[in-house]
Design a protein around this nucleic acid. Structure first.
Length: 887
DNA sequence: GACCTGCTGCGGAATG
């Protein structure tokens, strides 16, 4: 992973020389170097580079996939600046840390807010506070340092209302809240540095856009302030920098600000390995639970001191926790689980014990991807598909936090084909093929919220604010019409809500838009942010303590006495009352495990690409690495019965059974794209002949099942008329290339075909919940007042209907449709995929039985169908049949 | 009605 960026290749000595060539810096940097030396460190080249750029007034982005030292690089910028300015300029000699003759500063000479440190997690704020405090304390620098998040105690909050510290560590939401203060202009006017930690985590989300808008505000309020982002390495660093520092708009003449992209030190080696099932032939072809691998996982946990076992879903976390405990009952108390639906107190307990090293193993979802460093962790396991290169890299990085120790992640497959994904993701690590983050384009709901924020924070003149907003990456293309519409919408409620005063949120005062209504101001402050929570219901012991939350649908079918597992505990359902599920502990028996309907994570574009390459190699008989070697036999069956697709091929398998006519397509492009393609192909074929399909899809492909034969050849443009379709294909492989009229695979007409092929209106209506909430149309209610997510859904649905009927030009409706296409169908990726497929060779095979590739799709569909037969029996029967066929 | 894929993140007032 040796990508070359300026500064990285240079030795620290050379960079230091450049750094010191500027007068007056020598003394300050000596202080830093001595402080580092006291810890046995030497500043790294990239750190000198950041300090130098910072002191020159530049802003920038520091990135590294696994390295450390970014925090110190960013923090010492403002510290050096302070030291430089507070000591006599003539002092050129080496300074001693303890007795530095700094210009005396009165201890209580309260410095104004100079440094704003933004982090995406409350837990990270607390952690950061600790590490930033160290040099202040050692060097007796009179900065006050505090954090401000939702966790801040009322007393401290009140003090901060009167006077902010010199350096403030906070979250995006709390920053926005500060911007609603009527003295916002003054409190930020002395800002020198804004540091945005974990920027890769924020960018590409509405939360990131919220930060972009706040940063644009600071560029106006404190033009002297420099902004530095700390980020993991991602595929689109330029976008990341534009989003962080703003970019030049086509619509204004503002020059693009100075910026610097600095690569941090890659101090860690990352190792990806996998647990290969002992008897691969007996390993399931389908499914995602993977509990057959328990013995090997237990062994891996025993090898390490402390392990994190990552799973892809919350219910899988519960299942694996139970399974591990069943295999090692003596581990009770030293293993734990962690996911977002568990009560905060439980999670805090787990995190503290991880840090203390008293836990042997924690089973977790992405809730532990980020956050405090658990240095005792020396082993990370990933159950199931890694889904993406960056995602696995992130998880690997949770281990090996000691210097000189490499990070290692062990992938545990839950079905045979996942081994290919592991091999592919390793290719990604080695070639540095790390995913980019897709940008959010002009979300008008976030902009609407921002206008109210600025109206409260001193008010705004429309033209000036428009110029400022257009310096952001997210809104640099904002049209005048869109701006006017949002202004009108926020100011008056728009065309359909004018009669309701609570939606007229701006008043004009001497050419400035302000908000003086106290009630509206309060409601706004209480609903700041872009995170909209899922519908859930709290689970609580009768005695009082809260366990966490589950979805209402899970509880809906429970009756008193029913048992279920949650938070790793067997529970008995008592009743639902006061929007709570009341439970008591049950004896350890079998029981249901809740499922949460989250969003679906598809295979990333990069990983999909690498996967296609690996399969292409296998098609040529090349089986590289332990994973592919283990799969050789299975893939040989696939090849014998059907074909393994090369990277430039689209494989279609056609199978006829008593269920009907099955078509299996393998674009290898991830679940969401496949869902879109399934609907699109079904629609396009049904236009040729009346036919209906049952669909199922996974990350590798999708199935279309129909009672009559689908007009596949005609849809592919192979035959001009119906009579020729009778050409028998039998068992042969047909390879076609350069077909002229690929109706089925055409990237054209997507704008019409996609909405026509699925219920886009209903999807948009559901998506509107988030938009209505962010734009401030629906009020989430007072804390603990018990307004449910379902009520929010209902009221946002009403708004959706009203707008559709009386205000069809409402741009938030258009946004809902856009978001559905982008988030739920990955529309841009779908378009790219069609372009790729239409240039691919199409390979149609007619296997006599279900192949290793089609089998998982079949299971997927069967699972969704109710059957009197138990699914496991049914799968067993199918497997027997397959084995017989294979033998 | 039994089956298991479907993530994460924050914030908040007035009145007694």
């Amino acid at each position: 992973m040796n990508r070359s960026f300026a500064g990285v290749a240079q030795p620290a000595v050379a960079v230091r020389k450049v750094f010191l060539s500027k007068a007056g810096r020598r003394a300050a940097v000596h202080v830093a170097e001595e402080w580092f030396a006291a810890r046995g460190w030497t500043p790294l080249a990239f750190q000198y580079e950041v300090w130098s750029a910072y002191l020159d007034g530049e802003s920038g982005l520091i990135h590294s996939a696994t390295g450390t030292g970014k925090t110190l690089a960013a923090w010492w910028g403002p510290l050096l600046e302070y030291i430089e300015q507070s000591r006599p300029a003539r002092s050129e000699g080496p300074a001693s840390v303890a007795g530095a003759k700094r210009k005396p500063i009165r201890r209580n000479a309260a410095l104004p807010l100079r440094v704003l440190w933004i982090t995406p997690l409350r837990a990270l704020a607390a952690d950061t506070l600790e590490s930033l405090a160290v040099p202040l304390h050692d060097l007796d620098i009179p900065f006050t340092l505090e954090s401000r998040t939702g966790d801040t105690k009322p007393g401290q909050r009140a003090r901060q209302g009167k006077h902010l510290p010199t350096a403030l560590v906070t979250t995006p939401e709390s920053v926005t809240l500060l911007l609603t203060r009527d003295d916002a202009r003054e409190i930020f006017s002395d800002l020198r540095a804004i540091i945005v930690d974990e920027w890769h985590e924020l960018m590409g989300t509405k939360r990131g856009v919220q930060v972009e808008l706040a940063l644009a505000r600071f560029r106006t309020l404190a033009p002297q302030a420099r902004t530095w982002g700390l980020s993991a390495t991602i595929g689109n660093l330029q976008d990341a920098t534009d989003a962080l520092l703003g970019c030049r708009s086509e619509r204004t003449e503002e020059p693009a600000p100075e910026r610097r992209i600095v690569q941090g030190e890659e101090t860690k080696q990352v190792i990806v390995d996998s647990l290969i099932p002992p008897i691969v032939e007996r390993f399931p072809w389908a499914g995602h639970l993977g509990t057959q691998m328990i013995p090997q996982v237990i062994q891996a946990i025993e090898e390490g001191q402390t392990s994190i076992v990552f799973t892809n879903t919350r219910s899988q976390t519960e299942i694996w926790y139970q399974a591990i405990l069943a295999a090692r009952p003596e581990w009770a108390g030293s293993i734990a689980l962690h996911h977002s639906s568990l009560d905060r107190k439980t999670r805090d307990w787990v995190e503290n014990n991880m840090r203390a090293g008293t836990l042997r193993c924690v089973v977790a979802t992405s809730s532990l991807d980020l956050g405090v460093d658990f240095s005792p962790v020396d082993r990370v396991l990933q159950i199931g598909s890694p889904k993406g290169v960056a995602r696995l890299l992130q998880r690997a990085g949770r281990s090996g936090h000691r210097p000189g120790v490499s990070s290692r992640v062990t992938c545990v497959p839950t079905n045979a084909l996942e081994l290919v994904e592991v091999a592919a993701v390793r290719d990604g690590f080695e070639s540095g093929a790390i995913e980019g983050r897709l940008q959010v384009e002009r979300p008008l709901d976030v902009l609407a919220q921002h206008l109210v924020t600025v109206a409260l924070g001193g008010g705004f003149v429309p033209d000036a604010l428009l110029r400022e907003v257009r310096t952001t990456r997210a809104y640099h293309d904002l049209t005048d019409d869109e701006w006017q519409w949002v202004l009108h919408f926020v100011g008056t409620g728009g065309d359909s809500l004018q009669a309701y005063p609570e939606y007229a949120r701006l008043e004009l005062d001497n050419g400035r838009y302000v908000l003086t209504n106290r009630e509206l101001a309060r409601r706004h402050r209480m609903s700041i942010g872009t995170i909209v929570s899922d519908a859930h219901i709290v689970v609580q012991y009768q005695r009082g303590s809260v366990l966490g939350s589950v979805e209402e649908s899970f509880v809906a079918r429970m009756k008193p006495g029913d048992r279920f597992f949650f938070a790793g505990t067997p529970l008995e359902f008592i009743r639902v009352r006061d929007m709570r599920v009341w439970v008591r502990r049950a004896p350890n028996t079998r029981g249901a495990i809740p499922r949460w309907m989250g969003s679906r994570m598809p295979l990333s574009g990069e990983l999909a690409h690498l996967l296609r390459n690996r399969l292409g190699e296998a098609a040529d008989g090349i089986y590289r690495g332990p994973e592919l070697e283990a799969l050789k036999e299975l893939l040989t069956i696939q090849k014998k019965w059907s074909a393994i697709p090369h990277a430039d091929e689209l494989l279609i398998e056609r199978v006829k059974t008593r269920d009907g006519f099955h078509l299996f397509f393998y674009p290898l492009e991830g679940r969401l794209v496949h869902e879109g393609l399934a609907a699109l192909f079904a629609y396009r074929m049904s236009r040729l002949a009346p036919i209906s399909f049952v669909m199922s899809s996974n990350d590798w492909g999708f199935e279309l099942l129909s009672p009559t034969e689908a007009p596949l050849e005609r849809a592919l443009g192979l035959w001009a008329n119906e009579s020729e379709t009778s050409v028998a294909l039998s068992d042969t492989v047909v390879v076609l290339s350069d077909a002229e009229d690929l109706l089925l695979l055409s990237p054209d007409n997507l704008a019409d075909d996609i909405p026509a092929s699925l219920n886009a209106a209903e999807m948009a209506r559901r998506q509107f919940r988030e938009i209505a909430r962010v734009a401030g149309l629906v009020f989430p209610g007072f804390p603990r007042a018990g307004k449910t997510a379902r009520q929010l859904q209902a009221s946002s649905g009403l708004f959706f209907d009203v707008f559709q009927r009386y205000d069809p030009g409402n741009l938030l409706l258009a946004q809902a449709h856009r978001e559905v296409l982008e988030r739920q169908l990955e529309r841009s990726r779908l378009g790219q995929t069609l372009i790729r497929l239409s240039q691919s060779k199409v390979v149609i095979t007619e296997p006599k039985r279900f192949t290793p590739l089609s089998f998982p799709l079949l299971i997927d569909r069967t699972r969704n169908k109710v059957s009197s037969e138990k699914l496991s029996d049914r799968i067993k029967r199918m497997q027997l049949a397959l084995e017989k066929a294979a033998g």
